[in-house]
Every structure is written in structure tokens, then in C-alpha cells.
Design a protein around this nucleic acid. Structure first.
Length: 238
DNA sequence: CCATTAAGTATAC
DNA sequence: GTATACTTAATGG
């Protein structure tokens, strides 16, 4: 049950896991070894929560593989997806925001692997590891920018433009090149897209059906591929 | 223009 | 077979 026991049952983690990731790229092997030796690895299945909004922020995380969506619950129980996190990024960094609890729930959008550390180690990471705090600032700034961008969209753009923008962001951040276009790299439903854009799954379904007929996108259940990104860009402009 | 309701088909477990 | 994903039409704010 204890951390040390949990770690003992894990295979020894390889330094190469971290050495190319921005928060750790300036560190020596010795330091990365120390960081890994304190980490706990966990596999999260699709749809499972990594931590919940409002819970005490006991650990902070690094997403090694998979995708995570950050969701909040409205008072009436509707889910709002704030953003998606790609592999290699930190999450659950409540400490960096001056908080002691998690401001949102993190759900695995696809099967994911995370490393985590107790939050009490946060300050020593910031103090001892060169590049760790600057990368944290960069990530926080990047997410702030994305969220403020989306506030502008919600306030000024029509549903069609918002859904087009969401798709474009998804293929930019998590797109995978496939024959015929760029596919979103994790399972995503109309419901998910509607939660990102503040609309209903029916409206998203109608839009995607229309775009599919025009050859802009191609979709199967839980899979969306963008065939003509430029046409979506045109649509996304008011 | 877009949400809601409703009713239907398709696909996965 | 039943739950889940998706489509489509109709109605109304």
C-alpha cells in the first residue's frame, strides 16, 4: 500500500522516459534518476478519473502516454471540457496555482500512463531542478491562453465556428496523420465535442454529417478525421 | 440560428 | 439483448 511498496512492484523506470521532456531536459542523469525513484507509475483506463475536482491535491502528475481531458461539472450537473492534455505535460499542478485542491477533474480520454509524485516534493523540484519551474510557467501560460481564447469564442462566435475551431485545435494538438487526412488520436464522441463547445450532441452530429457530405471530415463511431483543414479554417472565421 | 424533443438506426459489449 | 453512439425530423424560442 505504501509508496515504497508500490514502487518495488514496478519495473525500474528508464531515464530516457524523461530526458527529452521539457521539465527535465536540462537535468543530469543523476537528477533524473532521483526523480524517477520517487515517482509512482499508474495506468489509467479510458474514461477513468485520475483525480477529482475539489479533492485535496495530494500528488502532481506527468502524462507519459495517452491523453487527458480536463473537465468541470456545472451546478446543474453538465460536464464542461476545459482542455485536453497531450503526453509529456504536467497535470494536477495545483501547487503551482497556489491551491491545495484540484480545480478540475482529470479524465483519461484514452488509456494513459502517468507518473506522479507527492505534492510535498513540489517545492524541492522547483528549487533544485533547473528548467522545472520555467516549464511549469510555460504550461500554465499556454493553458491560460487557450482558455481565454475559448472564452472569446464562446462569447462571440456561432456554434459552427466553435465546433470547427475545436476540431482544428484537436488535430493540431493531438492529430495523427493517416491516409486521407489527420485523425484525432483518441476516441471522441459527439457528446465530447459538444461539451467542449457549449452546444448539444445533436447540433454537433448535424454539423459533422454536413461536413462529411462536403468531404471536410470523415467519421466513424468515436473516430473523427479531418480531410480538409483549410476548409474548416475558412468556416471558423466569422 | 440553435436547443429540445422525439424517434429511429447502427454498433459495440 | 441491452446499452451506447449516432442520425434525422419536427417544433419552437
Amino acid at each position: 500500500m505504501s509508496d515504497s511498496l508500490a514502487r518495488k512492484t514496478q519495473p525500474q523506470l528508464d531515464e530516457s522516459l524523461l530526458v527529452h521532456l521539457p521539465p527535465f531536459s536540462k537535468l543530469e542523469t543523476r537528477q533524473i534518476r532521483a526523480i524517477l525513484d520517487q515517482a509512482t507509475t499508474r495506468r489509467i483506463e479510458e474514461g477513468a478519473a485520475i483525480f477529482d475536482e475539489g479533492a485535496p491535491a495530494e500528488r502532481f502528475y506527468l502524462l507519459l502516454d495517452g491523453y487527458v481531458r480536463v473537465v468541470r461539472l456545472s451546478p446543474t450537473g453538465e460536464r464542461i471540457t476545459a482542455l485536453h492534455i497531450p503526453p509529456g505535460q504536467l497535470l494536477g499542478i495545483a501547487r503551482a496555482l497556489g491551491r491545495t485542491d484540484y480545480p478540475a477533474t482529470a479524465v483519461a480520454a484514452a488509456e494513459s500512463i502517468v507518473l506522479s509524485w507527492p505534492t510535498r516534493l513540489w517545492d524541492s523540484f522547483v528549487a533544485e531542478y533547473e528548467g522545472f519551474s520555467t516549464e511549469t510557467y510555460a504550461v500554465v501560460g499556454q493553458r491560460l491562453e487557450e482558455m481565454s481564447e475559448r472564452i472569446m469564442e464562446l462569447a462571440t462566435q456561432h456554434v459552427e465556428q466553435r465546433v470547427a475551431n475545436s476540431l482544428l485545435r484537436l488535430i493540431n494538438q493531438t492529430g495523427r496523420k493517416v491516409a486521407g487526412g489527420i485523425e484525432i488520436d483518441f476516441p471522441i464522441t459527439r457528446q465530447d465535442l459538444s461539451e467542449m463547445t457549449g452546444t448539444t450532441l445533436h447540433t454537433v452530429s448535424r454539423l459533422l454529417s454536413g461536413w462529411e457530405k462536403q468531404g471536410l471530415v470523415k467519421s466513424q463511431r468515436k473516430r473523427i478525421m479531418v480531410c480538409d483543414a483549410h476548409a474548416l479554417v475558412v468556416l471558423s472565421q466569422p
